[in-house]
C-alpha cells in the first residue's frame, strides 16, 4: 500500500542507522548512524501527522473542524534542532579526541575502562 511507504522508509532507516552505529568503527561514521536514526524518528513523527481529508491549519476561512493540529510538525522541528545541537557537540568532541588521541577509531578510544 502506498500510504505505508513512509513507515517502510522509517524501518529501513532505523535498520541502516543501527547497523552503521554498531558495525562502523570510525567515530564520524557512527555519528552518521546517529543522524540517520534521528531522521528515522523525525520521518516517523511527520508521517503520523498526515490525516486523510484534513486541512492544513494555515487557511483563515477553512472549516475549522477539519483542520489538523500542527503538533507533529512542531515536534519534528524541535527534534531537528536538538539533533543539530547534538551533532555539533559530538563533532566538536571528535575534533578534540582526534587532536589528543590521534585517532577517531572507536576501538582505540578506550582510555577509560573497567
Amino acid at each position: 500500500m502506498f500510504w505505508n511507504l513512509p513507515y517502510v522508509a522509517v524501518v529501513l532507516l532505523t535498520v541502516i542507522g543501527l547497523a552503521t552505529i554498531l558495525l562502523k568503527r570510525n567515530l564520524i561514521k557512527i555519528f552518521f548512524g546517529v543522524g540517520i536514526l534521528t531522521s528515522a524518528v523525525n520521518l516517523f513523527i511527520i508521517a503520523l501527522g498526515y490525516r486523510e481529508g484534513g486541512i492544513a491549519p494555515i487557511y483563515t476561512y477553512a472549516a475549522s473542524e477539519n483542520m489538523v493540529m500542527a503538533t507533529p510538525q512542531a515536534l519534528t522541528l524541535t527534534s531537528i534542532v536538538i539533533g543539530v545541537a547534538t551533532t555539533a557537540l559530538m563533532l566538536s568532541f571528535a575534533v578534540i579526541i582526534y587532536k589528543t588521541y590521534g585517532t577517531v577509531n572507536v576501538d582505540e578510544i578506550r582510555e577509560l575502562k573497567e
Binding site: I21, L27, I30, V34, L37, T38, V41, I82, T86, L89, M90, F93, A94, I96, I97, K99, T100, Y101, I109, R110, E111, L112
Partner: peptide, 20 residues
C-alpha cells in the same frame, strides 16, 4: 588530555540513543 572528552562523548552517545 582528551580523557574527559572521551567520557563526555560516551555519555552523549548513550543519552542521544536514549533520547531517540
Amino acid at each position: 588530555r582528551g580523557l574527559a572528552v572521551e567520557a563526555g562523548l560516551k555519555y552523549l552517545l548513550v543519552s542521544t540513543i536514549g533520547g531517540i
